[in-house]
């Protein structure tokens, strides 16, 4: 029963991934991406990583893809948004490389998965948000702080990047919106 769910959601994730690439319209690509996100989130839930699943939705679906959509619409690309796919050669090379890569990775995964035993016993503790927080803020406190600095840097970087000289942000951007 559970394995069926794994298969279904895995399949949905892959279909979403394929659609991201196949769709010519970036808006559809973004929506396909959301589909994948949901499917992956479902896989997290199946593996009892509830908190990660929720955060996955909040961050990826709720923020990141919305940002994508926001930019797509802000640029208002019109026909330009529907760029034709790359040339035949590039498609071929890309596909070839991808298939080779997938083959190798698949072989590795298969080898590993077939030798791996059943899931470890401590799984009961995995779903607990508190234990997650404890590990995060004790064992990984320094990386956590570093990540916060990275985010700050990104914030400053974005401001520096989109600054237009001589024009305030409020007037120009706000008017467009």
């Amino acid at each position: 029963m559970e394995t069926l769910l794994y298969l279904v959601f895995g399949l949905v994730a892959l279909v979403g991934g394929v659609l991201v690439i196949v769709n010519r319209n970036p808006v559809y690509s973004a929506l396909s991406l959301v589909l994948t996100m949901f499917a992956v989130s479902a896989l997290y839930i199946l593996q009892q990583a509830y908190f990660v699943a929720a955060v996955q939705i909040v961050v990826y679906a709720g923020a990141i893809v919305v940002l994508f959509l926001f930019v797509i619409m802000l640029l208002n690309l019109g026909d330009q948004g529907n760029l034709p796919a790359a040339s035949g050669t590039r498609r071929f090379v890309g596909a070839l490389l991808g298939v080779t890569f997938a083959g190798i990775v698949g072989a590795v995964v298969w080898e590993y998965a077939s030798t791996a035993g059943p899931a470890a016993a401590a799984a009961g503790d995995i779903d607990h948000t508190k234990s997650l927080a404890r590990v995060l803020f004790q064992n990984y406190l320094l990386p956590f702080e570093v990540v916060s600095i990275v985010l700050l840097a990104a914030l400053v970087g974005v401001l520096a990047l989109i600054r237009t000289h001589g024009r305030g942000l409020d007037s120009s951007e706000a008017d467009n919106v």
């Binding site: 509830y50 699943a53 709720g62 919305v66």
Partner: peptide, 25 residues
């Protein structure tokens, strides 16, 4: 009774924007 209940609410609330933004586009 999800054990990340409030977060679930938060996740769903953040999805509401899709309807608006897609309708608009």
């Amino acid at each position: 009774q999800i054990n990340v209940g409030v977060l679930y609410f938060f996740a769903m609330a953040s999805l509401a924007v899709y309807g608006i933004i897609l309708a608009g586009w």
